[in-house]
Nucleic acid binder design. Structure first.
Lengths: 139, 139
DNA sequence: GAGTATCGTTGGTCGTACCAACGAATCAAG
DNA sequence: CTTGATTCGTTGGTACGACCAACGATACTC
C-alpha cells in the first residue's frame, strides 16, 4: 500500500495492486496445498503435452530451463513425475506425469478455480468479461 | 509466456501478463534513468510528506523499514537526500529531500507519465477509464 | 570429420517483498 | 522515578518469479 498521490492513481499501480492481490491469494492457496506456481505449471504442461524433455517443458511453460531442473527435482521427489533418460537422444530426459501427479493436478485445478472466483468476486459477470477483454488488449 | 490451456485464459494469468508488461516497461525506463521503483517511491514520499523519519517513509510508501535503509543509502550517496539525526528523538533520523533529489524526481515523474501512456496505448480513453474502474474494484 | 546447436545442470544475479532480532532510545503506568 | 512496553535504525535472512552465463555431453549439419 501507499499513500502517495503520484503513485496511487497510476494505471501501472492499479495493475500492480490488482496483480498483487491475485498473486497473494494464489500464492496462499498453492502454499496451503504445498506447492508453488512453478510446480503447477510444470504439472499442467506434462498433462497437456504428454511426456517430453525438460527443455520442452521450459518452452511450454515459459520457465527457464535452469529453473525447470529444481522444480522437477521436487516433483520427482514427490513422486508426481518421473525423469528417465531418453534412449533415442542421450542428451535428454523424458519427463512423465505419474498417477499421483495427475491426481494432484486435478486438486490444484480446483484450487486455481477457487482463486479465480475469489479474485473476481467484486465484479459482475459482464464486468469480468470486460476486464478480461481490456487486459487482453494490453498484452 | 505459456501455451498452457489451463493457464492462458485465467484472469490471474491475464492480470499477471498485463502487470508484467507494465512492470517491464517501467523497470526498463527506471533502469535507463539509473534508479529502481523503490528510489522513486522514496523520493516521492519525501516530496509529498516533507522531511520525516525512515519509519515514516516506510509507512508512507509501503516499503518495509529494513528495505528503506539500503534504498536511502543510495539516495544519500547520490546526494538526492540527506539523513541527519533527529535532535528531538535520538532514535530517529530526519530524512530530507535535496535540490538534486527534487530535480531528479521531476525527471522521473515524466518517465512515469511516459510509461503510463505506453502501457495504455492500445486502449481508447473510455477503455482506460473502464479498466481503471474495474481494477479499483478488485482491490 | 568439423563446426554448430541442443540438452541438463550448476551457480550466479536481480527486484520486490517479507520477517526476526538486536541495541539504543523513548514513552507510559505504576 | 523506575519498570515495562514500544519505537527506531539496522543487519541479515527468506521467498518467489525471472533471467543469464557457462560447462560437459551429445546430436545434427555441412
Amino acid at each position: 500500500m501507499t499513500s502517495l498521490q503520484r503513485v496511487a492513481g497510476r494505471p501501472t499501480w492499479a495493475l500492480g495492486r490488482a496483480h498483487a492481490r491475485a498473486q497473494g491469494l494464489l500464492g496462499e492457496a498453492f502454499a496451503a496445498a504445498g506447492v508453488r506456481g512453478y510446480h503447477y505449471r510444470l504439472l499442467a504442461a506434462l498433462d497437456e503435452h504428454g511426456p517430453c524433455s525438460q527443455a520442452d517443458l521450459g518452452r511450454a511453460t515459459g520457465i527457464d530451463r535452469s529453473d525447470v531442473v529444481a522444480v522437477l527435482d521436487d516433483l520427482v521427489a514427490w513422486r508426481m513425475a518421473r525423469r528417465d533418460p531418453d534412449p533415442s537422444d542421450r542428451r535428454r530426459n523424458v519427463v512423465t506425469l505419474t498417477g499421483a501427479g495427475a491426481r494432484r493436478l486435478t486438486e490444484l485445478d480446483r484450487v486455481l478455480d477457487d482463486v479465480q472466483e475469489a479474485v473476481l468476486a467484486p465484479l459482475t459477470a459482464a464486468e469480468r468479461r470486460t476486464l478480461l477483454a481490456l487486459l487482453a488488449k494490453l498484452s
